[in-house]
Nucleic acid binder design. Structure first.
Lengths: 120, 120, 120, 120
DNA sequence: GTGGTCTAGACCACG
DNA sequence: GTGGTCTAGACCACA
């Protein structure tokens, strides 16, 4: 379900956050579906429960999941969290495009590259 | 010439790298133009020379500058370095666009956002 | 009668306490009216009887309900319980208002916000 | 500077967050002023550095402070964070006032209580 | 059993 | 020395 890459520059808890967020926002994990427990996921990934705990806590604070003590953690309805994430992505997009323009790349070339990556 | 922002999430040496790279790739620093010495820049920015040293070393390893022992550091010809940087940016662009697509954003909406940010 | 919200930050037993207290103090449940039995309410809300038990026990200790062995639990006369609750709310009100003042908000602005929320 | 209360219902990291936030938003700690280091504060309060670390991390994510690895943590300019905090307080104010109204308290009585607490 | 908090101690990146 | 990440292990509140 989740793949950790220890050579990745991102810390482990961040990889978990990104992975779960993607699964939730794309609907691979349905709204209100139960996520694996902190301890279960820690065992499965062979890492410390505190690391999972941190990932879950941050996902909750950004609205992607909700946790109930004694019950478990659950995927949140997509709406709010998706909007937040989209804004982040748009900001990143603008920054990247701006730097490409500074390097003399035209908007047409950029649009071409985007279409070219369609099959990814 | 360079502006450091301590509230920026990026570490200082990274801000220096990004700043110098941009000045070089956009031509603001001409090819083969001499860069300030490590000690001079450290004094000007009021930071540790080790930090400048690291930025210069990494810029050299990615081909944006070259150093001549006893003479100083100089901006490299743009061609190779720019191509490398463009590929990085394209890769990032593809990743961002792909995630937006996963969230259900159409290519038309993405293109719209890029044009919208034209004035930035 | 009672609505549980698992996305609420408050634990279940607390939501039950708050919900019942409100029903009693506003008169929606009349004084001396019988409350549903622990088991009945647990079944209706599909939760653990221990959770209901805890809510009832704490409501009794704060004087909002009273229990008669073998008969069940009943809403208490409003007077005392309401006074206690009002004092709690006033204390919270004062703390919130004080912090707003510390942030430079004037009493007029605060009063305005209260009136503005009238329709809630 | 900060007082911890182990009998307080709030967890320690939360008490630290609330205390520092108040000091910053009221100007007791000036913008860009350096906060005590994670380790120093941990020693002073006789608690684990991880607990301080958590408080600082959350304050940074809500915009009240900013941290620079290798340099320290600093109070952020007041503007943004204050607005966020005010909204939280207004929301809490509305909820409290609404419950008082449900108990039959008139807006006049509420306003009276607020003025009464003026000297706090 | 589940999430949440805390401690003790370690290692790394940064300046 | 500073912040940031991670581990190991413990205890508590909740259901």
């Amino acid at each position: 379900m989740l793949i950790l890459n220890y050579r990745d520059a991102r810390p482990i808890y961040q990889q978990i956050k990104d992975g779960l967020r993607k699964l939730i926002l794309t609907g691979a994990i349905a709204p209100d579906e139960k996520l694996p427990s902190v301890r279960a996921l820690a065992t499965e990934l062979a890492i410390n429960p505190n690391t999972i705990q941190r990932a879950y806590a941050e996902l909750e604070s950004e609205g992607a999941i909700y946790s109930v003590a004694g019950k478990g953690s659950f995927a949140a309805p997509i709406n709010e969290a998706a909007a937040v994430r989209k804004e982040e992505l748009y900001a990143q997009l603008r920054a990247t495009v701006q730097e490409l323009r500074d390097l003399g790349v035209t908007d047409e070339e950029i649009a071409e590259k985007i279409k070219g990556g369609k099959g990814l």
